[in-house]
Amino acid sequence: MATINPYLNFPGNTEEAFNFYKSVFGGEFIFLQRFKDTPEADKLSPAEQEKIMHVALPIGQGNILMATDALESMGQQLVNGTNMSIAIGADSEQEAEKLFNGLLNGGKAEMPLQKTFWNAYFGMLTDKYGVQWMINYDYPQN
């Protein structure tokens, strides 16, 4: 069964925000990756390379608060109210495709489902009601 978690986008202050959330909720980050550690790092300025590509903070029983810095140089623009997505963790590629295609009906694909450098099958879309979704299936580690 798929899991659902909130995914937040920040205009360059994800690290500050998540250190704040960590001080409120406690716990430790289970994942933190900077843009400098991605295959596209050489296309970014030194300041952008230090921004957060992905961070994850467990909150409560099985919930994970996740986020990224939205970089304008990558064509990302934030508007208050649309700076959040619902992230779905699928159990298989087939489930990811079923969920993605179902939610896409009448909506718009922002990033088609595809294999990624972080060893996942991932896609993003906005449904016909304006809700933003991220669908992710993590391939098993060898």
Rank of each mutant, 00 (worst) to 15 (best):
G26M: 07
E28H: 04
F29L: 00
L32M: 13
L32Q: 09
Q33W: 00
R34F: 01
R34G: 08
F35M: 06
K36I: 05
D37P: 05
D37E: 12
D37Y: 00
T38F: 01
E40G: 07
E40P: 00
A41H: 08
A41S: 12
L44K: 02
L44C: 01
S45C: 00
A47V: 13
K51A: 09
I52V: 13
I52C: 10
I52H: 03
I52R: 00
M53Q: 10
M53T: 00
H54L: 11
L57R: 03
L57S: 08
P58H: 00
I59D: 07
G60F: 01
Q61R: 11
Q61M: 11
Q61C: 08
G62D: 05
L65I: 12
M66E: 06
A67Q: 11
A67F: 01
D69E: 09
E72S: 13
Q76Y: 02
Q76V: 07
L78V: 10
L78Q: 08
N80L: 15
G81F: 06
S85R: 05
S85Y: 09
S85I: 01
I86T: 13
I86C: 09
I88W: 00
G89S: 15
A90R: 01
D91G: 12
A96N: 06
A96I: 08
K98I: 14
F100V: 09
N101Q: 13
N101I: 02
L103Q: 11
L104W: 08
N105E: 15
G107H: 09
G107M: 11
K108R: 15
A109G: 04
A109H: 11
A109N: 04
E110G: 14
E110Q: 15
M111H: 10
M111G: 11
Q114A: 15
T116M: 14
N119Q: 14
N119F: 03
A120L: 08
Y121N: 11
F122H: 10
M124A: 15
T126R: 11
